[in-house]
Amino acid sequence: MTDTSTRQRRPRTELAADVGTRIKLKREMLGLSTGELGRSIGVTANAVTQYETGRAVPKQERLDALVTALGTSTEWLLTGHEPEQLAYAQTRLELDLLALIREIPAEQRPVVLAAVKRVAEAARRKG
C-alpha cells in the first residue's frame, strides 16, 4: 500500500510555471473561467488550473488547442515572445485600433473584445 501522506507531488519546472502564467494571463484577458477554457480545449477546469500553476504541462494536442482558444501563438505560450511576423505585421488601421483600445479602461476591455469577436465570427460565417 502506498502512504499518500508521503507521496510527493511532481516538482514544477520553470518552463511549466512560465507557460502556466501565460495561459492564465490570456485566459483572464479574455474573461474566461477555467471551466470555459477547459471545455473549449477538451479538458476539465482542474486540468486548466494544473496547467496554470505549472503542476502539469499540456501535451502537444492540448497546446495546439490552447493556442487556438487563447488566440495566441505556440511561440508566445512557450517563450513569451510573439513570432516576428506577428509583432511587425501591423497596418496603420491595426495601430489605430490598438491605440483606441488602450484608451478604454481595463475593466471595459473584455466587453469590447467580446463585441469584436462577434463581428469577426459573423464575417467568417459570411465567408
Rank of each mutant, 00 (worst) to 15 (best):
M1S: 10
M1D: 03
T2V: 11
D3E: 12
T4V: 09
T4M: 02
T4N: 02
S5W: 09
S5K: 13
T6W: 00
R7G: 09
R7S: 15
Q8Y: 01
Q8H: 09
R9W: 02
R10E: 03
E14W: 06
L15C: 04
L15Q: 03
A17Y: 01
D18Q: 01
D18S: 07
G20Q: 04
G20P: 00
T21W: 04
I23M: 03
K24Q: 13
K26L: 06
R27P: 06
E28V: 03
E28R: 08
E28F: 03
L30C: 02
G31H: 02
G31R: 10
L32M: 09
T34H: 04
G35T: 05
G35M: 08
E36C: 10
L37N: 02
L37R: 00
L37P: 01
G38R: 00
R39I: 08
R39D: 15
S40H: 05
S40G: 05
I41F: 01
I41K: 01
I41S: 08
I41Q: 01
G42I: 09
G42N: 14
V43N: 04
V43A: 14
V43W: 01
A45V: 07
N46S: 07
N46W: 11
V48Q: 01
Q50A: 09
E52I: 03
E52W: 00
T53L: 00
T53A: 00
G54D: 01
G54F: 00
V57K: 01
V57M: 05
P58T: 05
P58I: 07
K59H: 11
K59V: 14
Q60Y: 11
Q60T: 14
E61C: 15
R62Y: 03
D64R: 14
D64C: 11
T68W: 08
T68R: 14
T68I: 13
T68Y: 13
G71H: 07
G71V: 05
S73T: 12
S73W: 08
T74N: 10
T74Y: 06
E75D: 14
E75R: 08
L77I: 02
L78N: 03
G80T: 05
H81S: 15
P83L: 09
P83G: 10
E84Y: 07
E84C: 08
E84G: 13
L86N: 13
L86V: 08
A87V: 15
A87L: 11
A89D: 15
T91M: 12
R92S: 08
L93M: 12
L95N: 15
D96W: 04
L98Y: 02
L98E: 11
A99P: 03
L100V: 11
L100P: 09
R102F: 10
I104S: 13
P105Q: 07
A106P: 12
Q108Y: 10
R109L: 07
P110C: 14
V111T: 08
V111H: 12
V116F: 13
V116I: 11
K117S: 10
K117N: 15
V119G: 08
A120C: 14
A123L: 11
A123F: 10
A123W: 10
R124W: 10
R125V: 13
K126I: 14
